[in-house]
Design a protein around this nucleic acid. Sequence first.
DNA 1: GTGTCGGCCGTCTGCCGACAA
DNA 2: TTGTCGGCAGACGGCCGACAC
Lengths: 402, 402
Amino acid sequence: MRLSSSSSPTTTGFNAQTEEGETKCLNSELWHACAGPLVSLPLIGSRVVYFPQGHSEQVAASTNKEVDSAIPSYPGLQPQLICQLHNVTMHADIETDEVYAQMTLQPLTTQEQKDLCLLPAELGTPSKQPTNYFCKTLTASDTSTHGGFSVPRRAAEKVFPPLDFSLTPPCQELIAKDLHGNEWKFRHIFRGQPKRHLLTTGWSVFVSAKRLVAGDAVIFIWNENNQLLLGIRRAQRPQTVMPSSVLSSDSMHIGLLAAAAHAAATNSRFTIFYNPRASPTEFVISLAKYAKAVYHTRVSVGMRFRMLFETEESSVRRYMGTITGVSDLDPVRWPNSHWRSVKVGWDESTAGERQPRVSLWEIEPLMTFPMYPSPFSLRLKRPWPSALPSFPGVGDGDMSLN
Amino acid sequence: MRLSSSSSPTTTGFNAQTEEGETKCLNSELWHACAGPLVSLPLIGSRVVYFPQGHSEQVAASTNKEVDSAIPSYPGLQPQLICQLHNVTMHADIETDEVYAQMTLQPLTTQEQKDLCLLPAELGTPSKQPTNYFCKTLTASDTSTHGGFSVPRRAAEKVFPPLDFSLTPPCQELIAKDLHGNEWKFRHIFRGQPKRHLLTTGWSVFVSAKRLVAGDAVIFIWNENNQLLLGIRRAQRPQTVMPSSVLSSDSMHIGLLAAAAHAAATNSRFTIFYNPRASPTEFVISLAKYAKAVYHTRVSVGMRFRMLFETEESSVRRYMGTITGVSDLDPVRWPNSHWRSVKVGWDESTAGERQPRVSLWEIEPLMTFPMYPSPFSLRLKRPWPSALPSFPGVGDGDMSLN
DNA sequence: GTGTCGGCCGTCTGCCGACAA
DNA sequence: TTGTCGGCAGACGGCCGACAC
C-alpha cells in the first residue's frame, strides 16, 4: 500500500500491483508491526535527509563485510543529501518474509534548498503501530511437530474474535493473512485442564512453510476491518545473512555511493532499499526531524540524554547516557558529517552492544537549564558556510565529480 | 580448491577455508559438472579480458531488470579491460547450491599492455569435465515421497561401485559428498521385476533438504580418489531469481561500472562474481582466446559458422548459422566494443531462444577458402589506434574519469 | 529399461488431558 | 497461567513387486 493513499473502508489493504511483475504492495499495519516500534517511514512527498554513511552501514551489515579501505571516497558527495521523497513502498522478502522499504529520492537543486521552508504536515510523525495485536516468542513446544500453538490467554481474549462458549469445547476457525496476502487457516480451540487457548489444525503447516524455529516470534493483529493479520519476526541468528553472489560487497558500496553522487550531480532520482531489521540505524530521516535536532538542539560534552531502544518483546524502553564527545565518525571520507557525530557513554553496564556513537536526532537531551546556551555548544564548534547558514551540506562548490 | 594448486593425492579436495568465516573451497570436478560443459575458468595468474557489458548482462539477469536508461555511461571505461587474474575461487550458494566463481582482477598498466606476449600455458584451455559421471533429470516418481530414486542401469554400472550379486538382494551403502562437503548416505539396491537399480533409504532426506522437484537434475561423479560426488542442477524456473533487497538494481549496475572504472584508473584490484547458470554469456575471457578470435580470425557478412550449445542432458551440440552483420551492440554507451559485435542468423527454426548477437570468440567460422582475405574483412572496417595496434581498448587518451 | 501404481507396514504427526513450574 | 509430556489414533512415509509403455 502506498503511504500516500489513505485507506478507504472498501480497500482491504492487500491490493497487489502486478506492474513489472514484481511490485507488490502490502499491509501497512502488519509491515510496521514486523518492522518494530521504532521504525517510521517518512511521508511521500515530504523532504528527507539521506545519509550515504548510514546506507553504507546497512550494506555492510547485509553483506557481512565491513567497508574496505579500497573503496574510493567520493569527494563530490555530501555526507547528507536533502531530497524529495517521491515514493515509498513496503515490501517483504518472498523467502524469509523480512520486511524492507523501497524509496525513490531526488536530491533538491541548490535553488530548492535556498527556498526551503517546513510544511506543517512534515513536523508530525504519525505512529503506525497497531493497537490490537499481540507478539509471542515461540517455545520449543510451539514449533515441535508434537503439538500446536499455545495462545497466551490475555492475547487470545484481546485479539481473537470471542469464542462461543456454549460449544463443548468452544472452538472456531481463524483465517489470517500474512505480509504477502496469503491466507492461513487455524483451528482455535479452548480446552485442556486447566482450560487454555490453542491453535491446532493448520498451525504446523504454517510453521514449516515459514521455517519457524523456537525463538522466532509471531505477531497477530486484529485490524479495523476485522481482518486477522499474521506476521513473523525471526530471532537474529548469527551469520543469518549470506553474501550475495550477484555483486561483490565492494562494488555494492561503490554502487550506492556512485548512484547517490550521480543523482546529486544531476538532480535525478535514485532508488534505495531500507531494511529495518538488518540496518543498524535509519539513514533516511525526515527533514523536519533532522532540522529540529541539528538546529534547535544544543548539546555539549557531559550532557545527559536518553534514547529509545526496542526490547525483545517488541516494545520500547529508554536507556540513559552521557555525551562524551562530538567529532567526525570518519574525518577522512566524511568530514563535517552529522552521522553518528556524538560519542556517548551508557549508564548500564549491560550496554555493551549499544552503539558508542549516535546521531543527534536519535537522542533526547536532558536540559538541566533549559534553553540556556552551553559554553561547549556544538554549533559554535562547527560553523557552516555562510552562504547557506540554514541548510548546509550542498552547493558549497565541491560538486566537481562528473 | 584454488585452481592454481595441483591436487596432491593426500588432499580430499574439500579443504574448507574458514578465513573471514565465509570463504569455502570446494571440489573442482563437481563445480564444473554443475556449471556445465561449456564453462571454463581462466587460470590463476593468466591474463584475461573483462567485459563490463557482459557483467552488466549478468546483473540484469540476476536482478530480473534490464539496464535502465538512467544508468550513466562511463566514458572513461573501456568496453574491454585486459587484466591480470590474481585469484579464482569456486563457490556454491548455501541455500540453493547454485555454483558461482569469484575472481580478483587487476587491470594492466599501459606499459604492461605494451609488453604483452602470450605465454604458452595461456593458450591451452584444459577441459575440466569429469569423465566418470552421470546426470539424470528427476521424474515425478523420483521426487515423490512415495518411493526412492530409480537409477538408470548404464549409469549405475558405470559410476557406482559394483554390487555383490551373491547377496539377495544385492545392495550396498553409498556415501556421496555434495558441493559443500556434506555427506549423504543412500541405500543402493538391485531388486524388482524386472531387476533395477534403486536408491531407497536416505534419498528422500536428500530431496527434501535440497528442495528438489521434478525437472531438476542430479549429477553423480566417481572421481580418481574413489569418492562419490553429488551435485544438483535445478531446472530454470521462470522468475526463479528474486530482486535483492540490499541494493537497487540501478545501483548495482552503477556499482559494477564504477568499480571497474576505478580499478582501471588506478590499476588496482577489483572483485567480480561469475554465475555460469545465471549469466547469458561468459564475460571474463582468457586473453589468448580473445586475441586468437579478434586478431587471427577474419569474419565477414555471409560467412558460415558453428557454435556450441549445451543440451538439456548436460552435453554439447553444435548449431550452425550465418553472419548477417558486424556492428556495435550499443553504439552510444559502448562504441567499438567486441562484445556481441556479430549479428547472426541461425539455421534451425527452433533457434528462437538463441541470441541474435554473439561475440567473435564464441563462434567457429567455417572457411571455404581458408586463410584467404575476405573483401568484407572485419579488421579493415575497424582500424585500431596505431599506438597500440596489437591490443587495443586501453590507453587511448580517454581515461579522464577520476 | 524405467515411470507409476497398489499393497502393506512402520513411523511420525498431531490432538487430548495430566502435571508441574 | 502455560511449557512439556505420555497416551493414542490416524495419516503419511517409504519399501516391495506388478505392470505398462
